[in-house]
Amino acid sequence: MTDGNPDRPVIVLVHGAWHRPSTWDATRAALAGLGYETRIATLPSAGTDPSPTASMYDDAEAIRREVDAVDGPVVVLAHSYGGIPTAQGLTGADNVTQLIFLSAYLLDDGESMYSRHGMDAPADTSGTFPLPENPGLALYHDVPEDVATQAVADLVEQSLLSFTGTVTRAAWHDIPSTYIVSEDDRSIPTALQEVMAAHATTTRRWAGGHSAFLAAPERFAALVDEIIRSR
Protein backbone atom coordinates (compact mmCIF):
# COMPACT_ATOMS: atom_id res chain seq x y z
CA MET A 1 0.00 0.00 0.00
CA THR A 2 2.83 2.36 -0.78
CA ASP A 3 2.02 3.32 -4.39
CA GLY A 4 -0.47 6.15 -4.71
CA ASN A 5 -1.55 8.86 -7.08
CA PRO A 6 1.30 11.41 -7.22
CA ASP A 7 -1.25 14.21 -7.38
CA ARG A 8 -2.62 13.31 -3.97
CA PRO A 9 -1.07 13.80 -0.55
CA VAL A 10 0.37 10.91 1.40
CA ILE A 11 -1.80 10.06 4.40
CA VAL A 12 0.02 9.33 7.66
CA LEU A 13 -2.22 7.30 9.96
CA VAL A 14 -1.96 7.52 13.75
CA HIS A 15 -3.56 4.81 15.88
CA GLY A 16 -5.05 5.28 19.33
CA ALA A 17 -4.17 3.94 22.76
CA TRP A 18 -3.88 0.16 23.19
CA HIS A 19 -3.80 -0.28 19.41
CA ARG A 20 -1.17 -1.28 16.89
CA PRO A 21 -0.71 -0.19 13.26
CA SER A 22 -2.62 -3.21 11.94
CA THR A 23 -5.87 -1.66 13.18
CA TRP A 24 -5.71 0.54 10.06
CA ASP A 25 -5.28 -2.33 7.55
CA ALA A 26 -8.81 -2.37 6.14
CA THR A 27 -8.96 1.40 5.73
CA ARG A 28 -5.45 1.46 4.23
CA ALA A 29 -6.68 -0.94 1.56
CA ALA A 30 -9.74 1.22 0.93
CA LEU A 31 -7.62 4.37 0.67
CA ALA A 32 -5.23 2.61 -1.71
CA GLY A 33 -8.22 1.86 -3.91
CA LEU A 34 -8.87 5.60 -4.03
CA GLY A 35 -5.29 6.31 -5.07
CA TYR A 36 -3.74 7.26 -1.74
CA GLU A 37 -0.35 6.19 -0.44
CA THR A 38 -0.45 5.67 3.31
CA ARG A 39 2.15 5.43 6.03
CA ILE A 40 1.75 4.36 9.65
CA ALA A 41 3.11 6.05 12.74
CA THR A 42 3.81 3.32 15.28
CA LEU A 43 3.38 4.77 18.76
CA PRO A 44 5.88 3.39 21.29
CA SER A 45 3.49 4.02 24.18
CA ALA A 46 1.49 0.96 23.06
CA GLY A 47 3.08 -2.48 23.23
CA THR A 48 3.38 -5.84 24.91
CA ASP A 49 6.94 -6.95 25.68
CA PRO A 50 8.25 -5.32 27.73
CA SER A 51 5.38 -3.25 29.08
CA PRO A 52 5.50 0.16 27.39
CA THR A 53 7.02 3.11 29.23
CA ALA A 54 7.05 5.71 26.43
CA SER A 55 5.59 9.16 26.92
CA MET A 56 3.25 11.22 24.77
CA TYR A 57 6.31 13.16 23.64
CA ASP A 58 7.94 9.94 22.41
CA ASP A 59 4.79 9.28 20.40
CA ALA A 60 4.91 12.82 19.01
CA GLU A 61 8.46 12.24 17.82
CA ALA A 62 7.43 8.99 16.11
CA ILE A 63 4.68 10.81 14.22
CA ARG A 64 7.02 13.61 13.20
CA ARG A 65 9.56 11.09 11.86
CA GLU A 66 6.94 9.54 9.59
CA VAL A 67 5.89 12.96 8.33
CA ASP A 68 9.46 14.12 7.77
CA ALA A 69 10.21 10.96 5.76
CA VAL A 70 7.67 11.98 3.11
CA ASP A 71 8.95 14.07 0.20
CA GLY A 72 5.77 15.93 -0.58
CA PRO A 73 2.44 16.99 0.93
CA VAL A 74 1.02 15.02 3.84
CA VAL A 75 -2.37 14.71 5.51
CA VAL A 76 -2.27 13.25 9.02
CA LEU A 77 -5.28 11.24 10.21
CA ALA A 78 -5.33 10.58 13.96
CA HIS A 79 -7.71 8.49 16.05
CA SER A 80 -8.64 8.83 19.73
CA TYR A 81 -5.55 9.26 21.98
CA GLY A 82 -3.48 9.66 18.81
CA GLY A 83 -4.83 13.18 18.45
CA ILE A 84 -2.73 14.35 21.40
CA PRO A 85 0.76 13.47 20.10
CA THR A 86 -0.33 14.52 16.61
CA ALA A 87 -1.12 18.01 17.83
CA GLN A 88 2.08 18.06 19.90
CA GLY A 89 4.47 16.80 17.25
CA LEU A 90 3.58 18.62 14.04
CA THR A 91 4.03 22.31 14.79
CA GLY A 92 6.34 23.62 12.07
CA ALA A 93 5.85 20.59 9.81
CA ASP A 94 5.75 22.54 6.56
CA ASN A 95 4.65 19.62 4.38
CA VAL A 96 1.52 18.85 6.42
CA THR A 97 -1.40 20.40 4.57
CA GLN A 98 -4.22 19.12 6.75
CA LEU A 99 -4.96 17.34 10.03
CA ILE A 100 -7.96 15.02 10.41
CA PHE A 101 -9.06 13.97 13.89
CA LEU A 102 -11.44 11.01 14.27
CA SER A 103 -13.15 10.64 17.66
CA ALA A 104 -9.93 12.13 18.96
CA TYR A 105 -8.57 14.11 21.86
CA LEU A 106 -7.95 17.53 20.37
CA LEU A 107 -6.22 19.46 23.10
CA ASP A 108 -5.03 23.05 23.41
CA ASP A 109 -1.73 24.33 24.73
CA GLY A 110 -1.30 23.46 28.41
CA GLU A 111 -3.83 20.63 28.38
CA SER A 112 -3.37 16.91 29.03
CA MET A 113 -5.86 14.10 28.86
CA TYR A 114 -6.14 14.25 32.64
CA SER A 115 -6.77 17.99 32.76
CA ARG A 116 -9.28 17.72 29.90
CA HIS A 117 -11.31 15.47 32.20
CA GLY A 118 -10.80 17.76 35.20
CA MET A 119 -8.51 15.28 36.96
CA ASP A 120 -5.07 15.57 38.54
CA ALA A 121 -2.36 13.38 37.04
CA PRO A 122 -1.23 10.58 39.36
CA ALA A 123 1.96 11.09 41.35
CA ASP A 124 3.25 7.72 40.17
CA THR A 125 3.18 7.56 36.37
CA SER A 126 4.87 4.18 36.04
CA GLY A 127 3.00 1.15 34.80
CA THR A 128 0.13 0.94 32.36
CA PHE A 129 -3.34 2.41 31.97
CA PRO A 130 -6.08 -0.24 32.05
CA LEU A 131 -8.37 -0.94 29.15
CA PRO A 132 -12.06 -0.03 29.42
CA GLU A 133 -13.98 -2.63 31.40
CA ASN A 134 -15.67 -3.93 28.24
CA PRO A 135 -13.43 -2.93 25.32
CA GLY A 136 -15.61 -4.65 22.75
CA LEU A 137 -18.57 -2.50 23.73
CA ALA A 138 -16.62 0.70 24.33
CA LEU A 139 -14.52 0.61 21.17
CA TYR A 140 -16.26 -1.64 18.64
CA HIS A 141 -19.98 -1.92 19.39
CA ASP A 142 -20.98 -1.32 15.74
CA VAL A 143 -18.09 -3.26 14.17
CA PRO A 144 -18.87 -6.65 12.53
CA GLU A 145 -18.62 -9.32 15.21
CA ASP A 146 -15.70 -11.24 13.71
CA VAL A 147 -13.74 -8.05 13.13
CA ALA A 148 -14.48 -6.78 16.62
CA THR A 149 -13.43 -10.07 18.20
CA GLN A 150 -10.08 -9.94 16.41
CA ALA A 151 -9.64 -6.26 17.25
CA VAL A 152 -10.10 -6.95 20.97
CA ALA A 153 -7.61 -9.83 20.77
CA ASP A 154 -5.08 -7.50 19.13
CA LEU A 155 -5.17 -4.84 21.85
CA VAL A 156 -1.95 -4.27 23.79
CA GLU A 157 -0.86 -2.43 26.91
CA GLN A 158 -0.66 1.37 27.07
CA SER A 159 1.78 3.32 29.22
CA LEU A 160 0.19 5.40 31.95
CA LEU A 161 2.83 8.08 31.38
CA SER A 162 1.52 8.73 27.86
CA PHE A 163 -1.84 9.89 29.23
CA THR A 164 -0.26 12.54 31.46
CA GLY A 165 1.71 14.52 28.87
CA THR A 166 0.82 18.18 28.45
CA VAL A 167 0.58 19.73 24.99
CA THR A 168 3.05 22.61 24.69
CA ARG A 169 2.11 23.94 21.23
CA ALA A 170 -0.84 22.48 19.35
CA ALA A 171 -0.26 22.17 15.62
CA TRP A 172 -3.91 22.86 14.79
CA HIS A 173 -3.24 26.53 15.58
CA ASP A 174 -1.25 26.69 12.33
CA ILE A 175 -2.44 23.76 10.17
CA PRO A 176 -6.01 23.48 8.81
CA SER A 177 -7.91 20.69 10.52
CA THR A 178 -11.11 18.70 10.37
CA TYR A 179 -12.71 16.94 13.34
CA ILE A 180 -14.96 13.94 12.66
CA VAL A 181 -17.50 13.68 15.48
CA SER A 182 -18.72 10.12 16.04
CA GLU A 183 -22.35 10.44 17.06
CA ASP A 184 -22.72 7.01 18.71
CA ASP A 185 -19.35 6.79 20.44
CA ARG A 186 -19.27 4.64 23.58
CA SER A 187 -15.69 5.61 24.48
CA ILE A 188 -15.35 9.39 24.13
CA PRO A 189 -18.75 11.03 24.77
CA THR A 190 -20.12 12.91 21.79
CA ALA A 191 -20.63 16.02 23.94
CA LEU A 192 -16.92 16.07 24.77
CA GLN A 193 -16.04 15.57 21.12
CA GLU A 194 -18.19 18.58 20.25
CA VAL A 195 -16.26 20.73 22.72
CA MET A 196 -12.90 19.66 21.30
CA ALA A 197 -14.12 19.91 17.70
CA ALA A 198 -14.52 23.65 18.23
CA HIS A 199 -10.73 23.89 17.90
CA ALA A 200 -10.83 22.50 14.36
CA THR A 201 -11.24 24.48 11.17
CA THR A 202 -14.17 22.35 10.03
CA THR A 203 -16.31 19.54 11.44
CA ARG A 204 -17.81 16.42 9.88
CA ARG A 205 -20.16 13.92 11.49
CA TRP A 206 -20.09 10.10 11.50
CA ALA A 207 -23.30 8.27 12.38
CA GLY A 208 -21.51 5.49 14.24
CA GLY A 209 -19.19 4.46 17.03
CA HIS A 210 -15.60 4.99 18.07
CA SER A 211 -13.86 2.96 15.35
CA ALA A 212 -15.23 3.99 11.95
CA PHE A 213 -12.14 2.58 10.21
CA LEU A 214 -13.18 -0.93 11.29
CA ALA A 215 -16.96 -0.53 11.18
CA ALA A 216 -17.16 0.59 7.54
CA PRO A 217 -13.68 0.99 5.98
CA GLU A 218 -14.81 1.82 2.45
CA ARG A 219 -17.38 4.37 3.57
CA PHE A 220 -14.91 5.90 6.01
CA ALA A 221 -12.19 6.10 3.33
CA ALA A 222 -14.68 7.87 1.07
CA LEU A 223 -15.30 10.44 3.82
CA VAL A 224 -11.56 11.00 4.23
CA ASP A 225 -11.25 11.44 0.46
CA GLU A 226 -14.09 13.96 0.48
CA ILE A 227 -12.47 15.93 3.32
CA ILE A 228 -9.13 16.07 1.50
CA ARG A 229 -10.68 17.03 -1.83
CA SER A 230 -12.82 19.74 -0.24
CA ARG A 231 -9.76 21.85 0.53
Results as ranks from 00 to 15, higher is better:
1 M>Y: 04
3 D>K: 11
4 G>P: 07
5 N>D: 15
5 N>S: 15
6 P>I: 04
8 R>P: 02
10 V>Q: 01
10 V>P: 03
10 V>H: 05
12 V>W: 06
13 L>E: 08
14 V>A: 06
14 V>R: 06
17 A>N: 03
19 H>S: 11
19 H>G: 09
20 R>Y: 00
25 D>P: 02
26 A>W: 05
27 T>I: 03
28 R>E: 12
29 A>E: 13
30 A>G: 01
32 A>H: 12
34 L>T: 09
35 G>W: 10
40 I>Q: 07
40 I>E: 10
44 P>M: 06
44 P>H: 10
48 T>P: 00
50 P>K: 07
51 S>W: 00
52 P>N: 11
57 Y>T: 05
58 D>S: 11
59 D>E: 13
59 D>C: 12
61 E>L: 14
62 A>M: 11
64 R>A: 09
64 R>Q: 05
65 R>V: 04
65 R>E: 09
68 D>M: 06
71 D>G: 07
75 V>D: 01
77 L>P: 02
77 L>G: 09
81 Y>V: 03
81 Y>A: 04
82 G>P: 03
83 G>L: 07
85 P>C: 12
87 A>I: 11
88 Q>D: 13
88 Q>I: 08
89 G>V: 03
89 G>R: 04
89 G>D: 04
90 L>G: 01
91 T>F: 01
94 D>L: 07
95 N>W: 00
95 N>C: 05
95 N>P: 03
99 L>H: 03
100 I>R: 01
104 A>G: 11
106 L>S: 09
107 L>Y: 12
107 L>T: 15
108 D>M: 03
110 G>F: 01
112 S>M: 11
112 S>N: 10
121 A>Q: 08
121 A>V: 13
122 P>H: 08
123 A>W: 00
123 A>N: 15
124 D>W: 00
126 S>Y: 00
129 F>K: 04
133 E>T: 14
134 N>K: 14
135 P>E: 13
137 L>C: 01
138 A>E: 10
142 D>Q: 10
144 P>M: 07
147 V>H: 02
150 Q>K: 14
150 Q>M: 14
150 Q>P: 04
153 A>C: 00
163 F>M: 15
163 F>R: 14
164 T>E: 08
165 G>F: 07
168 T>V: 14
168 T>P: 11
169 R>S: 12
170 A>V: 14
171 A>K: 05
173 H>P: 00
176 P>V: 09
176 P>Q: 13
178 T>M: 01
179 Y>Q: 01
180 I>P: 02
181 V>N: 07
182 S>K: 02
187 S>H: 13
188 I>Y: 00
190 T>D: 06
191 A>P: 02
193 Q>Y: 00
193 Q>A: 02
194 E>T: 09
196 M>L: 08
197 A>G: 10
198 A>L: 11
201 T>P: 01
202 T>K: 15
203 T>K: 14
205 R>V: 06
205 R>S: 08
206 W>H: 02
207 A>K: 15
207 A>F: 06
208 G>W: 02
209 G>M: 04
212 A>H: 05
212 A>D: 03
212 A>C: 05
212 A>Y: 01
215 A>H: 04
216 A>C: 03
217 P>D: 05
219 R>A: 15
221 A>Y: 03
221 A>P: 09
222 A>W: 08
225 D>S: 07
225 D>T: 06
225 D>I: 07
229 R>P: 00
